[in-house]
C-alpha cells in the first residue's frame, strides 16, 4: 500500500461526496430533456442541498435518537463503501477490511437505519414506507449475494480488488455467460435498492405509492438534506461498483502513479455518467410496477443470479 493509494481512497470519498448530487442532477436533466422539459440544470440538487442545510432543524415530537442518527448512519455507511471500493484505483487501504459480503452488509445497515427511523415516527406513512422498503431489501439480498458468488468464482476471492484484477487479467470473461447473467441480475437489484423506476419512483409526491419517500416523510431541513445526499451517494457508488466490476478498464493499479489516478478519475466519471444517462433514459419509457409485482421482478433476477453461478461453475473453469 503506497501513499498514493491512500490518497486515491480519500479522493474517492471526497469525489463521491461532491459528485453524487451532480449525478442525480444529470439524471434529472436527461429525463427532463427527453420529456420535452427544460429541466433545472445539473447543479439543481446542489442548490437544493444548500438551501435545506441552511433551514431550521425541525424535530418531530416523540421521535427518539434512532430518528436523529439514522441519516448520518445511512450516509456514513455509503461513505465507507466509497472508501472500500476500487473506484479510482485498486488496493484501497480498506480493501482487506471488508470484502464484497461486507460491503453488501454495510449497504443493508444503512437501509435498516432509515427503516427504523421510519418506524420511529409512529405515523402511518413512516410504517408503510419502512414495511415496503424492508420487504424489497429482504428479497434483494439473496440476489446480490448470489451475484457476488458468481463474480467471485473467477478470481477465487470475494475481495473487490481481486475480482477487478481478475477481470483485468482475463478480459474475455466479461462476456462469459455467467458474467452477463450476473450483470443483468445486479442491474435489477441496484435499481430496486436505490429506489428507481420501475420499483420506486424517486420523484413521486403521492404518498400512497411511495416507498423510500414515504419512509423519510418526517425529515425536513438539514436532516432531509443528509438523507437525500446519502441516497444520491448510494446510487453513485453502486453505479461505480457496477461499472468497475464489469468494465474495469481505466482504473489505476494497486501501486499507482498520480497520472494513473487521474486517468482513473476521468474513466470512472465517464463510465458513471454513461450508466446514469442510460438509466435515466430508460426510465422515461417505463412506468412504475405495482408493488406486488415487484417480487416477481426480483425473483426473476434471483433466478438469473442462480443461473450465473451455475454457469460459472460448469462453463468457466477457473484459469489457474
Amino acid at each position: 500500500m503506497s501513499a498514493l493509494s491512500i490518497v486515491a481512497a480519500v479522493l474517492q470519498v471526497v469525489v463521491v461526496l461532491v459528485g453524487a448530487p451532480f449525478v442525480v442532477g444529470g439524471m434529472r436533466q436527461v429525463r427532463a430533456r427527453l420529456e420535452g422539459r427544460a429541466g433545472g440544470g445539473v447543479g439543481q440538487p446542489w442548490r437544493d442541498l444548500r438551501k435545506q442545510l441552511r433551514k431550521q432543524q425541525v424535530t418531530p415530537r416523540g421521535t427518539t435518537l434512532v430518528f436523529a442518527v439514522a441519516p448520518a448512519i445511512a450516509a456514513g455507511t455509503t461513505l465507507l463503501i466509497a472508501a472500500i471500493l476500487p473506484i479510482f484505483a485498486l488496493g484501497s487501504p480498506l480493501d482487506s477490511v471488508a470484502d464484497l459480503f461486507g460491503v453488501v452488509g454495510l449497504l443493508f445497515l444503512g437501509t435498516v437505519a432509515l427503516t427504523l427511523a421510519g418506524l420511529d415516527t409512529g405515523t402511518a406513512f413512516g410504517g408503510m414506507g419502512s414495511s415496503r422498503e424492508i420487504t424489497i431489501a429482504a428479497l434483494v439480498e439473496p440476489t446480490i449475494l448470489l451475484a457476488v458468488f458468481a463474480l467471485s468464482i473467477p478470481g477465487q476471492s470475494a475481495n473487490l480488488s481481486a475480482i477487478v484484477s481478475a477481470t483485468l487479467d482475463n478480459p474475455g470473461q466479461v462476456f462469459s455467460l455467467g458474467s452477463v447473467l450476473a450483470f443483468v441480475a445486479l442491474v435489477i437489484v441496484i435499481i430496486a435498492e436505490t429506489g428507481r423506476l420501475p420499483v420506486d419512483n424517486p420523484s413521486t409526491h403521492l404518498e400512497l405509492t411511495m416507498i423510500h419517500e414515504a419512509m423519510v416523510l418526517e425529515y425536513a431541513g438539514p436532516k432531509l438534506a443528509l438523507v437525500e445526499w446519502a441516497s444520491g451517494m448510494r446510487l453513485t457508488v453502486l453505479l461505480a461498483l457496477l461499472a468497475n466490476l464489469f468494465l474495469p478498464w481505466g482504473i489505476a493499479g494497486a501501486d499507482p502513479s498520480l497520472l494513473a489516478v487521474l486517468i482513473g478519475v476521468v474513466a470512472i466519471a465517464v463510465k458513471v455518467s454513461v450508466l446514469a444517462g442510460l438509466l435515466a433514459a430508460g426510465e422515461v419509457f417505463i412506468a412504475k410496477l405495482r408493488y406486488f409485482r415487484v417480487p416477481e421482478l426480483l425473483s426473476g433476477s434471483f433466478l438469473l443470479a442462480l443461473l450465473a453461478v451455475t454457469a460459472s461453475y460448469f462453463l468457466a473453469t477457473p484459469t489457474r
Binding site: 461526496l17 450516509a75 461513505l79 436532516k223 443528509l226 446519502a230
Partner: peptide, 9 residues
C-alpha cells in the same frame, strides 16, 4: 464515516 457525514450536515 458517520462522523464525516455528520460534519457534512
Amino acid at each position: 464515516g458517520v462522523l464525516l457525514a455528520f460534519a457534512a450536515s
